[in-house]
Design a protein around this nucleic acid. Sequence first.
RNA 1: ACCGCAGACCGCCUUAUCGCUUUAUGUUGAACUUGUUUCAACAUCUAUUUAUAGAUUCUGAAUCAAGUUCAGAAUAAAGAGGAAAGUCCGGACACCACAGAGUAGCAUAACGGGUAACGCCCGUCGCUCGUUGAAAGACGAGAAGGACCAGUGCAACAGAAAGGAUGUACAGUUCGGCUGUAGUGAAAUCAGGUAAACUCUAUGCGGUGAAAUGCCAUGUAUAUCAACGUUCCGCUUUGGCGGAUAAGGGCUACUCGUUCGAUGUUGAAGGGUAGGCAGCUCGAUUCAAUGGGUAACUGUUGAACCAGAUAAAUGAUAAGGGUUCGCUUCGGCGAAUACAGAAUCCGGCUUACAGGUCUGCUUUUUUU
Length: 124
Amino acid sequence: MTFTYPKHEKLKSQKQIDLLFSEGKSVSKYPLRLVFAPVELENEEKIKFGVSVSKKYFKKAVDRNYYKRLLRECYRLNKSILFENLDKPYAMMFFYQSKEAMTFTEMNEKTVQLFEKFIKEIQS
RNA sequence: ACCGCAGACCGCCUUAUCGCUUUAUGUUGAACUUGUUUCAACAUCUAUUUAUAGAUUCUGAAUCAAGUUCAGAAUAAAGAGGAAAGUCCGGACACCACAGAGUAGCAUAACGGGUAACGCCCGUCGCUCGUUGAAAGACGAGAAGGACCAGUGCAACAGAAAGGAUGUACAGUUCGGCUGUAGUGAAAUCAGGUAAACUCUAUGCGGUGAAAUGCCAUGUAUAUCAACGUUCCGCUUUGGCGGAUAAGGGCUACUCGUUCGAUGUUGAAGGGUAGGCAGCUCGAUUCAAUGGGUAACUGUUGAACCAGAUAAAUGAUAAGGGUUCGCUUCGGCGAAUACAGAAUCCGGCUUACAGGUCUGCUUUUUUU
């Protein structure tokens, strides 16, 4: 299993994002939150993935960039959990929802827990 | 040596693992196009032994070569700032009627220079403040430095009164609050101060802003364009032609001016949204040498190419090392490592900033 996060795996389409927010469900593990919805994808891709950190929580662009990078790293290193358990393609968006700082190690643990929770959710 | 001030510059590093963006190189695969060769089928032509051979065209398949596009993996190179920030000025560039006249509005304000331009920068003069000095002056710092003989306004304290005021006392007197003196104040119908007061003068300013704008693919409301078309008058060969009419709209903050002109029909064209390409990074660029200038800045010559993302890359983790601070049993231990993230591009200004380097000046101490 590779640990890449190439361009075509990023969630970019406005339509898919609108769909995600209007019809998507979510699971969370404070301070992380994952919104997801099943979609039709081309070329047998399984996931479209995006990250977001709100201006509400971090005023400065530098801080937002930093946490977005951490979120991307967490996805990149743990995405095998998702790929091995998905039965159909999904679009998903990953949020950091807290004003408090967090280290990479903590965030990584939370991400694994969150992804396992997500797998249970879609299998039930 | 130390402290302070001013100016200029720098603003964490190394290794490993896993990633991201752009460019280049060759490579693999797929699709398409063109061509070569071979085979098959059909058709036509030629020859003769009349069912064979040869040639040509087209179609299909295979093969090889070249090109284009897409995808994959590989290698190499490059990859945030001094403020990228605030979006406060000035430009480049693009479009909107290439941009009209007047009014209003806004900005600037000594003189000279620099610049693409500026409200920026440099120099000079004057002013104010501080230090020093008997003074002249010297040194340092600061600022929003045009005009109150155009008009209107404002003015602390003192004073009767600061502008249709003229009180009190005394004196003079043509007996009229007419004249003078005293008194307050910088200034008392004699004028002066004030434009970080209105105002005046001079100069400048059209608007929008890369989500500008152009193209490609997709392709629809009906905004747009063209023709016909509303009403009235005249002419008429009865087909039309010419002139006028204007609710409203566009150009503006307003007026003038100019321009389009209801509803509808036909045709053309093709908005927005989502996607791609261009704009998009070679430029008032950077560095070095040298010439000019007190300086800001600039001429010449040589060299270099230095981010181009777009739900938005430029990183994450681990270990080690710098640097600073604190504690110290002088072995070390602990903590911190600033401000902050390109979005069309430049020149400024303003604000934020741990720490460090260099230069100049001043004070104090030590040695000679």
